[in-house]
């Protein structure tokens, strides 16, 4: 088994009196796809956002291979925070595209402004990536001119253009109309097939089952169960995993 690309240990986070994460561990190896599932309020989105510093945990450690270990129980220097953030890129639930920029500008903003990639090179790469998700002809459109599924595919391309080591997905399909979910999941599956390392917070259990290498079931701010999808979905060990799966898969029972 290879060394983890990213390793988070004992992550704790409270919002006021609400202790959302109570010591979560997460290792991600290169090329692995990890799915975080669980009821709303279980802390899975907070966990994901702790991995790129959108949330600052109260305690715990985070390390990327070759980087320093960040200890959240002490003040984290900005340089460390930025270095960790640059290893990953996130796809948001509500795409968060920049409405005042075209599709192409959305994708090239990070590479050109932050990574200092020459504009021509960044645009060529962006155009390639857009073509790969079937949006080549939309490069000069504004986000509001796109469907929800197209917007989310641009969101994915914007993340890919940063050439991160790790892709983070925060419920990327839960704000979409049902008929638009498939096009986004297809893109994500093809990324997994290409060997991208991904952590995906999702309610799409079928996707988790088919694409993930490991599934973490979070409940009440802890990992209640973790395992390979074949095991976790067919023979869950924990009673609360069974109940959760039952509620999602057979909501009318």
């Amino acid at each position: 088994m290879s060394e983890p690309l990213m390793s988070a240990r004992g992550i704790h986070k409270s919002f006021g009196d609400n202790h959302v994460l109570r010591g979560v561990d997460l290792d991600v190896r290169p090329g692995q796809v990890v799915a975080l599932i669980g009821p709303s309020g279980s802390g899975k989105t907070t966990m994901l956002r702790s991995l790129n510093g959108l949330e600052m945990p109260d305690a715990g450690t985070l390390a990327f291979d070759g980087g320093p270990e960040i200890d959240f129980s002490r003040p984290v220097p900005a340089a460390q925070r930025f270095a960790a953030r640059d290893r990953s890129a996130m796809v948001f639930q509500h795409h968060n595209l920049f409405p005042h920029k075209t599709v192409l500008q959305n994708v090239t903003e990070g590479p050109v402004q932050v990574r200092k990639v020459p504009r021509a090179e960044a645009e060529a790469r962006a155009t390639d990536l857009l073509a790969r998700v079937g949006l080549a002809e939309k490069r000069d459109a504004y986000p509001r001119e796109l469907s929800g599924g197209q917007q989310q595919r641009v969101g994915i391309v914007r993340a890919l253009a940063l050439q991160p080591d790790l892709l983070l997905f925060d419920e990327p399909t839960s704000a979409l109309d049902p008929e638009l979910v498939g096009e986004v999941l297809h893109v994500m599956k093809s990324l997994a097939d290409e060997g991208w390392t991904m952590v995906v917070v999702t309610h799409e259990l079928q996707f988790a089952r088919e694409v993930a290498d490991e599934v973490l079931f979070l409940d009440g701010g802890v990992v209640a169960e973790r395992g390979a999808p074949a095991q976790l979905f067919t023979h869950p060990r924990e009673e609360r995993t069974k109940q959760f799966l039952h509620r999602i898969l057979r909501p009318l029972d």
Binding site: F82, R85, A89, F92, H94, F98, E109, G110, Q113, V114
Partner: peptide, 22 residues
């Protein structure tokens, strides 16, 4: 929306640059 700040951070921008460009 806060998501615009976060999107700026995620593409690697600092607070000041996100403010100015986004």
């Amino acid at each position: 929306p806060t998501g615009q700040w976060e999107a700026g951070y995620v593409v690697g921008m600092s607070h000041a640059r996100t403010l100015r460009r986004i």
